[in-house]
Amino acid sequence: TRVETATETAWISLVTALHLVLGLNAVLGLLLLRWQFPAHYRRLRHALW
């Protein structure tokens, strides 16, 4: 059971790390998009709101 718990903890930390990386990538991607295409982003925002 100790090995199972260790594997579980490893999986949880792995999934958490993946989520963090994906979240960071999403934020960075959005920031890059805003920086690269400000006009396009503004138009998109007007369409959404």
Rank of each mutant, 00 (worst) to 15 (best):
Leu24Met: 14
Val27Ala: 08
Leu30Asp: 01
Ala17Arg: 02
Trp35Asp: 04
Trp11Phe: 11
Asn25Lys: 05
Arg45Tyr: 04
Leu24Gln: 01
His40Tyr: 08
Thr16Tyr: 08
Val15Cys: 02
Leu18Arg: 05
Leu44Pro: 08
His40Met: 12
Val15His: 06
Ala26Arg: 05
Leu44Thr: 06
Leu24Gly: 06
Phe37Asn: 04
Thr9Asn: 01
Leu18Met: 09
Ala47Glu: 04
Leu18His: 06
Thr16Trp: 03
Tyr41Ser: 07
Ala10Cys: 03
Pro38Phe: 04
His40Thr: 12
Gln36Glu: 03
Thr1Trp: 03
Val21Glu: 10
Ala39Asp: 15
Leu22Glu: 06
Leu18Gln: 08
Trp11Met: 06
Val15Asp: 09
Glu8Val: 07
Leu20Gly: 02
Asn25Gln: 07
Glu4Tyr: 12
Val21Cys: 15
Ala6Pro: 07
Ala10Ile: 07
Thr5Ser: 07
Leu24Lys: 01
Leu31Ser: 06
Gln36Asn: 06
Glu8Thr: 02
Leu32Phe: 03
Ala10Glu: 15
His40Gly: 11
Leu22Arg: 07
Ser13Asn: 05
Val3Gln: 11
Ala6Leu: 06
Trp11Glu: 00
Leu48Ala: 13
Val21Thr: 14
His40Phe: 11
Thr1Lys: 12
His19Tyr: 15
Ala6Gln: 10
Tyr41Ala: 13
Leu24Asn: 04
Glu4Trp: 05
Tyr41Gly: 02
Leu31Met: 14
Val27Asn: 07
Arg2Lys: 13
Trp11Tyr: 15
Ile12Trp: 01
Arg42Lys: 11
Trp35Lys: 15
Phe37Trp: 00
Gln36Trp: 14
Leu33Ile: 12
Val21Gly: 14
Arg34Asn: 05
Leu33Glu: 01
Trp35Phe: 14
Trp49Cys: 09
Thr7Trp: 13
Glu8Phe: 02
Arg43Leu: 04
Glu8Asp: 12
Ala17Val: 10
Val27Met: 09
Phe37Asp: 02
His46Phe: 08
Pro38Met: 08
Arg42Asn: 12
Ala47Ser: 12
Ala47Pro: 07
Leu44Asp: 07
Arg2Ile: 14
Thr7Asn: 11
Ala6Met: 06
Trp35Val: 14
Leu31Glu: 03
Leu32Tyr: 11
Thr9Glu: 09
Ser13Glu: 01
Leu30Gly: 09
Thr9Arg: 09
Leu48Tyr: 00
Ala47Ile: 09
Ala39Val: 12
Thr9Phe: 10
Ala47Val: 09
Tyr41Glu: 01
Arg45Ile: 05
Thr9Val: 13
Leu22Ala: 10
Thr16Pro: 03
Asn25Trp: 04
Val3Gly: 10
Arg34Tyr: 10
Thr5Phe: 08
Leu30Pro: 04
Asn25Val: 04
Ala26Asn: 00
Trp49Leu: 06
Leu32Gly: 03
His46Pro: 11
Leu48Lys: 02
Leu22Tyr: 08
Arg45Asp: 00
Leu28Trp: 07
His46Asp: 09
Leu30Lys: 01
Asn25Ile: 03
Glu8Asn: 04
Trp49Met: 00
His19Gln: 04
Leu32Lys: 01
Phe37Pro: 04
Arg45Leu: 09
Ala17Gly: 07
Val21Asn: 05
Leu28Pro: 04
Glu4Ile: 14
Glu8Pro: 09
Ser13Tyr: 11
Leu22Trp: 00
Ala6Trp: 01
Tyr41Phe: 15
Trp11Ser: 05
Leu31Trp: 11
Leu44Glu: 00
Val3Leu: 11
Trp35Pro: 05
Val15Gln: 03
Ala10Gly: 11
Glu8Arg: 04
